[in-house]
Simulated assay, not measured.
Amino acid sequence: MNDNSENAQGKQFRLLDFQSNCPDCTVAVGEPHEYDEYDGGCDVARCLVTGLQRLICDLDHDCGRDVWTGWWPGQLDCEQLGWMISPGLPDLNRLYTQATWDPARCAWVKPR
């Protein structure tokens, strides 16, 4: 599917459009993703120390409370870096393999 796909009603959409609520834990924009001590909580939430998915973070630190922005994690970073496969489709593989997470900015940046 590409960014020129249409749904059954003929409406054009992008793969990663803005969403007012998190697709997993349903929190609204500006709210922290749900966290559960037992199972980790939201699948979308990121560790603010590593930038990677909070659920798979097994490092001994506090991952912080990631806030839902309305955009899929990494999408705005890819757009900022110019790393898009096509309009509306960020190159997240490139982001996670070539960029560096800056915990102070909570953003992926080009490596120096």
Rank of each mutant, 00 (worst) to 15 (best):
N2P: 00
N2L: 07
N4W: 01
N4P: 00
S5R: 10
S5Q: 14
E6K: 14
A8Q: 08
A8Y: 06
K11L: 13
K11V: 10
Q12K: 15
Q12C: 02
R14V: 05
N21Q: 15
C22I: 10
A28W: 02
A28K: 05
P32L: 13
E34S: 04
Y35A: 13
D36A: 10
D36C: 12
Y38R: 14
G40K: 05
G40I: 13
G40M: 02
G40N: 12
D43A: 15
D43Q: 03
A45N: 10
A45V: 08
C47I: 07
L48Y: 07
V49I: 14
T50C: 15
G51I: 03
L52P: 00
L52I: 01
L52S: 09
L52V: 02
L52N: 07
L52G: 05
Q53M: 08
L55E: 02
D58P: 00
D58F: 06
C63G: 05
G64V: 01
G64I: 02
D66S: 13
D66Y: 08
V67C: 12
W68P: 03
T69S: 14
W71R: 13
W71C: 08
P73L: 06
G74M: 09
Q75Y: 09
Q75G: 01
L76G: 02
E79A: 14
G82R: 11
G82C: 05
P87E: 15
G88A: 04
N93F: 06
R94K: 15
L95E: 00
Y96N: 06
T97R: 13
Q98Y: 09
Q98P: 00
A99I: 05
A99R: 11
A104I: 02
A104P: 01
A104E: 15
C106Q: 15
W108T: 06
P111T: 10
R112H: 06
